[in-house]
């Protein structure tokens, strides 16, 4: 501070001396010289006193009326801005909440739809299984029926075969020997052969 003061004071000295040199260099331009340095002039006292009075009045009007007015306006504005910011912030919060709710609802709906779908699929699956089982049962019943029929046919065929075999045997024997064998004996022998062959 002291160094700066000294520099400033040196600058002032230079300025003042420069000014006085300039004033001297321009004679006639400044006919009255520097009237403000004439301290014997009674106007100086008046200047100081009136300066003080005007300054005081200016200060009072500014500090009591004008500046509070400006300050009030600025304060109102900052208050209003912060109020608006609060409103905006709460609005944003509401919006965020609404978005979260929406997302939750969407998720719930999705889950529900998934569950419904699953249920429907399960029911369909069950129905299909049941139908399949029914068809299987009917088919196996039919197969069993058919097998039974086949077995019956086979038995009948075997029965007929026995007769044919007996007839053939009787014919062969009568042709070979010329003697017609006893039909009962032949049937007995054929039966034995069949049993022996285990056909």
């Amino acid at each position: 501070m002291g160094v700066m003061m000294k520099i400033v004071r040196a600058g002032l000295l230079a300025t003042v001396s420069g000014v006085s040199l300039l004033v001297m260099a321009a004679p006639g331009a400044h006919a009255a010289g520097m009237p403000q340095l004439d301290f014997h002039n009674p106007l100086v006292t008046g200047q100081v006193i009136w300066g003080a009075v005007i300054f005081l009045g200016f200060y009072l009007v500014l500090s009591q009326i004008m500046l509070p007015r400006v300050g009030r306006v600025l304060e109102d504005r900052s208050k209003r801005i912060s109020g608006d910011l609060d409103v905006a912030r709460s609005a944003k919060q509401d919006a965020d909440k609404a978005v979260a709710e929406l997302q939750q609802a969407r998720k719930d709906a999705m889950a529900e739809a998934q569950a419904n779908l699953q249920k429907t699929l399960d029911a369909e699956q069950r129905a299909a299984d049941q139908k399949l089982a029914e068809i299987n049962a009917r088919l196996s019943a039919e197969i069993a029926d058919a097998e039974k029929r086949i077995a019956a046919e086979k038995a009948q065929a075997f029965g007929t075969l026995k007769e044919i075999a007996a007839d053939t045997t009787q014919a062969l024997v009568s042709r070979l020997t010329g003697v017609t064998p006893d039909a009962q004996l032949v049937a007995q022998k054929v039966d034995g052969a069949i049993a022996h062959q285990n056909i």
């Binding site: 002032l12 003042v16 420069g18 000014v19 300039l22 321009a26 006639g28 331009a29 403000q36």
Partner: peptide
């Protein structure tokens, strides 16, 4: 400082005007 600055400024005006 204030006085000299103001005076210097006006003296400059005066000189160049002269």
């Amino acid at each position: 400082r204030l006085f000299a600055n103001m005076v210097a400024g006006h003296v400059m005006f005066d000189i160049f005007a002269s």
